[in-house]
C-alpha cells in the first residue's frame, strides 16, 4: 500500500528546541510541524498519514500530561513521545502507563528520538491498518440484508443449513442461497474466516 510521508508533530514551548527538532526530522525526510502550546496543536486537523507526537511535559497552559489525557478522552489515538527538561520518576510512570511510546530526558541523542519516532509511526501505521480493515468489514457487514444477518449469525454459531432452515422457517435450499450471498459479500473464503470477521466486528454469535 503506497503511503504518504509520515508526519511528526512537535509541541514544545522552547523555540530553540522546536527549531532543532524540525531540522532533525527534515534531515531524515520526515514532515514536521511544531507548536509552542497544546492548545495550538489541538486546532490542527489530523493528516491522513501515520503520525506521532513529540511532546514536552512542562508547557504553559495545558501541560504535556494533560494533553495526553485530553487526547485519550477525545479518542484521538496518536502515539506520544515525551521529552522533558527535568524528568521525575512519578511523572514518567504516569506518562508510560497512559500509553506513551517513550519518555526522554533532555538532552537526548538524535538516534534515541528517531528510534522512538520510528517505533511510534509503526505503531500508528498498524493501528491505522486495523482501523481501515475494520471499516471495510463493517461496510461489508452493513451491505447484508436483515435475512442474511440472521443466516450469518446462525452459520457462525455452527448450525447446518437444514437446522437454519428449520429455525428460520424456510427450506434448506433457500438457506443455501443466502449463505452463498453472505460468503460473497463478506469476502470470506471459509466459515472459519467468517467467524474471525464476526469476532473482529465485535458481534457475538447467538447462543446455541
Amino acid at each position: 500500500m503506497p503511503e504518504a510521508n509520515p508526519f511528526v508533530f512537535v509541541v514544545d514551548d522552547n523555540p530553540s528546541v522546536r527549531t532543532a527538532l524540525k531540522r532533525l526530522f527534515s534531515s531524515v525526510g520526515m514532515q514536521c510541524e511544531t507548536y509552542p502550546s497544546a492548545q495550538e496543536f489541538l486546532q490542527r486537523n489530523r493528516p491522513d498519514v501515520p503520525t506521532c507526537l513529540v511532546l514536552d511535559v512542562r508547557l504553559p497552559g495545558l501541560s504535556g500530561l494533560d494533553l495526553q489525557s485530553h487526547l485519550a478522552e477525545a479518542n484521538y489515538r496518536i502515539p506520544i513521545i515525551f521529552i522533558t527538561g527535568h524528568g521525575e520518576v512519578p511523572m514518567s510512570v504516569r506518562a508510560m502507563k497512559a500509553g506513551a511510546v517513550e519518555f526522554l530526558t533532555k538532552p537526548f541523542h538524535d538516534q534515541e528520538l528517531l528510534d522512538a519516532v520510528l517505533q511510534a509511526l509503526q505503531r500508528d501505521r498498524t493501528a491505522r491498518q486495523t482501523r481501515a480493515y475494520l471499516a471495510t468489514l463493517r461496510e461489508r457487514w452493513e451491505s447484508l440484508t436483515p435475512r442474511e444477518h440472521e443466516v450469518l449469525a446462525l452459520v457462525v454459531a455452527g448450525r447446518l443449513n437444514k437446522q437454519i432452515g428449520a429455525e428460520l422457517g424456510t427450506s434448506e435450499k433457500t438457506i443455501k442461497v443466502h449463505r452463498h450471498q453472505v460468503m460473497l459479500k463478506m469476502q470470506a473464503q471459509s466459515v472459519a474466516q467468517l467467524v474471525l470477521m464476526v469476532e473482529k466486528l465485535g458481534l457475538t454469535a447467538p447462543r446455541v
Binding site: 522552547n14 532543532a20 527538532l21 521529552i83 527538561g85 530526558t105 533532555k106 538532552p107 537526548f108 538524535d110
Partner: peptide
C-alpha cells in the same frame, strides 16, 4: 540548562 542543551545536542 537542559532546554538549551537539548537544542544544542539535537542541532
Amino acid at each position: 540548562i537542559n532546554q538549551p542543551l537539548a537544542a544544542v545536542v539535537t542541532n
